[in-house]
Design a protein around this nucleic acid. Structure first.
Length: 613
DNA sequence: ACGGCTCAGACC
DNA sequence: TGGTCTGAG
């Protein structure tokens, strides 16, 4: 739900930069022969030609649209070039696009506060740059205005018949009788034009931009003239723009809220909102949203541009629609392992490149239960402290899954069905890492950071009883050990930076106490805690997370050495052939299912929290 | 129960 | 808090 924020400054200059069909541009840079041709990026080519996720403007002229199938696109535009999104570990790999987005951000951040809004969009606060320009080199005194700036669209600037459009723009920029706010926007035009040219020069990507006094209007404007153009919203044209703007075009109003405004309140355009008092809107939609709506009807939007160049979370997910739904814990575990591998890799890059550490691991699952009435019951999301290292992330994610599954199955586990699967299917899995904080470089935030470390470094302890093929075998609620996933972590109270770490702390595991002793030792030798954290993380990282080759081997061994032995072969025979094949592949070169002998004693070794490597 | 895969933010 | 929901591209 949107929330109202007071306007911080009477007249800001905000730009919204939107890359044009970004994924297509990234692919065209890789394959320059595709430039200028109708092109689309598709994922999962095997079914009906895959789904389009980005479409070039040349292809759009033929009526090709996003969310079309590759085959449909070929029908309306036979000459279209379809490029597949890269696949890694059986899923779409968007890293190339993420990295390309970062290239752009690093250029755009040069002139002012920059907020990465998505993989291909950023907001810029150019107020300072514009004020500076106005003071030192105001546009009025510039005889030559850049050609790119002259191509800007200025909302509300009426082009009289026969008049030269560029000349009108030049005049608008040069106007010296304009009020301060428009003069600032004029500076914004020049700055953004320059930035866009810089992006093109350094990355070969084109983008479109909106320039206005707040984020909402800038965002609105950037989409009005694409591709490779920029649009300005002078203060005087705001109300005219909003009055006729369909309510759903407004950011945040494209969903249920916008629909409710339309259906319940008869609001069809943003201007229609003006007839309602702030109180009325608050009464219907709550204080925050009500005020927010009242403001946007008037073109007021105080949201600040956050100075943030990096994402706040990383996620890796995959859907398993319809018949492809996962029906065994083993299949789930296989895919969780893939997703966690990707996540771990990205966390590693983030650590290397940005010196940041994530502290929370979350698992999201979508599932259906065919059995009974509560089939629409949601599979609960679960989270736990994030431990670095691919194998650890995989282990923790799997534990989260089991905890969720037990809740999901609830009391209707259908115990009578024996080893048969009990009627659930997983249609979507995703793991994400959040609470990402920079490794402190100075001493100021050590205490806080250290608190994080101690509460996240060691977490769930698993027992072998949890690792079963079938959910019907899950132990009954109450005495199962994976509830420990959600147990509160022991925390150390730091009263300040000089806080001392005790040698022995009640409630801490042996391992944690050992570490704390080690930390003391380290500190007593004159090192700062910040240094220690870096060392610790670096070591952990080097050992298990970033050495992919060795790690992979190790992980396979680990992941499968405990529960293959527990698979009932009769269960495998009843699975869909696709999954059977998968399992057969995993089992090799281990035993064939027929030869499986019950033998579960090595499990505790693999899940011991003291396990190293 | 095909629109996949990500992200952010608000609410309680 | 953690978990759910909404909304965006």
């Amino acid at each position: 739900m949107p929330v109202a924020k007071p306007e911080s400054c009477d007249s800001r200059v905000i730009a919204h930069i939107d890359m044009d069909c970004f994924y297509v541009q990234v692919e065209q840079r890789k394959q320059p022969q595709l430039r200028g041709l109708p092109t689309a990026v598709v994922q999962y080519n095997e079914w009906k030609g895959g789904a389009l996720i980005a479409v070039s403007y040349e292809a759009r002229k033929f009526g090709v649209k996003r969310s079309m199938r590759g085959e449909e696109a070929k029908e309306v535009c036979p000459q279209i070039h379809l490029v597949q999104v890269p696949v890694a570990r059986g899923k779409a790999d968007l890293n190339g696009y993420r990295n390309a987005g970062s290239e752009v951000v690093s250029i755009l951040a040069r002139r002012g506060r920059c907020e990465r809004a998505s993989i291909d969009e950023v907001y810029l606060d150019l107020t300072d740059a514009a004020e500076t320009m106005l003071a030192e080199a105001p546009p009025q005194h510039l005889e030559a205005i850049d050609e790119e700036a002259l191509k800007s669209h200025i909302l509300g600037l009426n082009n009289e018949d026969g008049s030269d459009v560029k000349e009108n723009v030049r005049n608008w920029i040069h106007r010296c009788n304009a009020d301060h706010r428009d003069k600032l926007l004029a500076c914004g035009i020049l700055i953004v034009a320059e930035l866009r040219m810089q992006v093109l020069k350094e990355t070969e990507f084109t983008c479109s931009a909106g320039i206005a006094h707040n984020k909402m209007l800038a965002k609105l404007a950037s989409g009005m003239n694409k591709p490779a153009q920029q649009t300005v919203v002078p203060f005087s044209s705001v109300q005219g723009l909003l009055n006729s703007l369909p309510i759903r075009k407004m950011k945040q109003l494209g969903g249920k809220l916008g629909m409710s405004l339309q259906i319940d309140m008869g609001v069809n355009t943003v201007g229609d909102l003006l007839q309602f008092s702030e109180e009325k809107l608050q009464e219907r939609y709550g204080l925050n949203t009500g005020t927010w709506l009242w403001n946007i009807a008037r073109g007021i939007n105080g949201e600040a541009v956050e100075g943030r160049l990096l994402p706040k979370s990383h996620g890796s997910g995959k859907t398993f629609p319809g018949p492809r739904a996962l029906k065994t814990v083993s299949a789930v575990q296989h895919w969780l392992n893939q997703l966690c591998e990707e996540l771990s890799e990205r966390l590693c890059s983030d650590l290397d490149q940005n010196k940041r550490i994530a502290h929370t691991l979350t698992l999201h699952v979508r599932a259906y239960k065919s059995s009974d009435s509560d089939s629409q019951k949601k599979f609960p999301s679960k989270s736990c402290p994030l431990r670095y290292g691919t194998a650890k992330i995989q282990e923790d994610a799997f534990n989260l899954f089991q905890a969720g599954l037990r809740e999901y199955i609830g009391l209707y586990g259908g115990k009578s069905e024996g080893s048969h699967y009990s009627g659930w299917g997983i249609t979507s899995l995703s793991v994400s890492a959040s609470k990402i904080v920079p490794i402190p470089s100075g001493t100021c935030s050590i205490a806080k950071y250290f608190h994080w470390q101690t509460s996240s470094h060691f977490s769930s302890i698993q027992s072998p009883e949890n690792l079963r093929m079938d959910a019907t075998h899950l132990s009954p609620p109450g005495n199962e050990s994976y509830s420990e996933v959600n147990l509160p972590e022991p925390k150390i109270d730091f009263s300040g930076e000089e806080s001392w770490i005790e040698d022995t702390i009640p409630g801490l595991g042996l391992q944690e106490q050992k570490i704390n002793v080690w930390k003391d030792e380290f500190q007593s030798r004159g090192h700062s805690l910040a240094e220690l954290n870096e060392v610790e993380v670096a070591e952990e990282n080097e050992r298990s997370s970033c050495s992919y080759i060795r790690d992979q081997d190790e992980r396979r061994r680990e992941a499968w050495s405990y529960n293959i032995d527990e698979i009932d072969p009769s269960v495998i025979d009843e699975l869909p052939t696709e999954i059977q094949d998968e399992i057969q592949a995993w089992l090799q070169p281990r035993k064939r299912p027929n030869n499986i002998v019950k033998r579960g004693s090595t499990i505790s070794h693999y899940f011991s929290p003291t396990k190293k490597s």
